[in-house]
């Protein structure tokens, strides 16, 4: 039997950070980590590889679409192969698999797939469905994105990330909103994967969930841009800041490496928010992946080339 943990959460919620720390701390050991990126080129698998190898786990990337729809066949194949591998070998203990979905995935479709497939149903049990919610921007997403509310509603465990940056009472209010959507899930706050309990605010501050039928049809696409060595950090940072401000609902996510004159930086943005850049781990390709909603990728690339000329042609 294989125990599976499904890790989900919107783009930039902090899934990979939480999972990397979870792998480091996991006492039982994980055999396989399946990482799904919506973009054609994954960044998460490269970031997770170090933590996974420390934990003795293999990393299997599935890129270029969501596990719940476009790439559900790929997930099925990977899990079947893992089951086959365990059947052939002398497994001393139950297997453990962690599946990190893309930010746009609908986890309930994956759980349905696990339940519908006769091989998976017999050989794999879903131990926990963890949903990571951004501790700062999560409330905005819950108010305005139906898909994020759906993710939270099916969770066994909800992790509120970036707890260190939250202001007084903010996480508790977010926890109350989550509690309103999911009455039973375990709630924890997390700072770089280190967890602590969080108690929902009582009485809860009311939220109006207002996106039902009112937002334009989403048109989510991704693109990758290679940045030249010696890209000006000032040019890229100013462009990213103005983009995130002008289009917080359309530039859903950016993640990748900026090879500045002073070193390679891992730079990420989630909606209107930019995370603290950190030195890039080795083994990650230079390039930036963008997930866009109702923005033409060509227009984004043109804008980047115009405002960040040092990034090269």
């Amino acid at each position: 039997m294989i125990d599976a943990t499904l890790v989900s959460g919107f783009l930039g919620a902090g899934k990979t950070t939480w999972l990397a720390e979870h792998l480091r701390r996991h006492e039982d050991g994980v055999d396989l980590v399946v990482v799904n990126d919506f973009a054609d080129q994954g960044v998460d698998d490269a970031l997770l590889r170090e933590a996974a190898s420390e934990a003795g786990a293999r990393v299997e990337p599935i890129v270029g679409g969501c596990l719940c729809c476009d790439r559900d066949g790929a997930l099925r194949r990977v899990l079947h192969a893992e089951i086959g591998r365990r059947h052939r070998g002398d497994a001393a203990r139950d297997g453990r698999v962690v599946v990190e979905t893309s930010g746009l995935a609908e986890p309930h479709r994956i759980t349905r797939m696990l339940a519908d497939d006769p091989v998976l149903r017999t050989n794999l049990s879903l131990r926990s469905l963890v949903v990571v919610v951004d501790g700062l921007g999560g409330r905005r997403l819950l108010r305005h994105r139906h898909g994020v509310r759906d993710q939270v509603a099916v969770a066994d465990r909800v992790v509120l990330s970036r707890a260190d940056l939250a202001r007084h009472g903010e996480l508790e209010e977010l926890a109350a909103t989550v509690r309103r959507l999911n009455a039973t899930a375990e709630l924890v706050a997390s700072t770089l994967g280190t967890e602590r309990p969080v108690t929902p605010a009582d009485p809860a501050v009311a939220d109006v969930f207002d996106d039902d039928g009112t937002v334009a049809e989403p048109d989510v696409r991704s693109c990758r841009v290679d940045l030249a060595e010696g890209t000006s950090w000032a040019e890229y940072a100013l462009w990213l800041d103005t983009m995130c401000r002008a289009h917080p609902d359309r530039l859903l996510r950016s993640k990748g490496i900026v090879p500045t004159r002073d070193g390679r930086l891992l730079v990420q943005s989630m909606g209107g928010d930019v995370a603290t850049p950190v030195p890039a781990p080795p083994g990650v390709d230079t390039g930036m992946v963008f997930v866009l909603d109702r923005i033409d990728p060509d227009a984004l690339v043109r804008s980047l080339r115009t405002h960040v000329p040092s990034a090269g042609a």
Partner: peptide
């Protein structure tokens, strides 16, 4: 929207 840290 906006950052709480001086990420630049």
């Amino acid at each position: 929207p906006g950052s709480r840290i001086d990420w630049y």
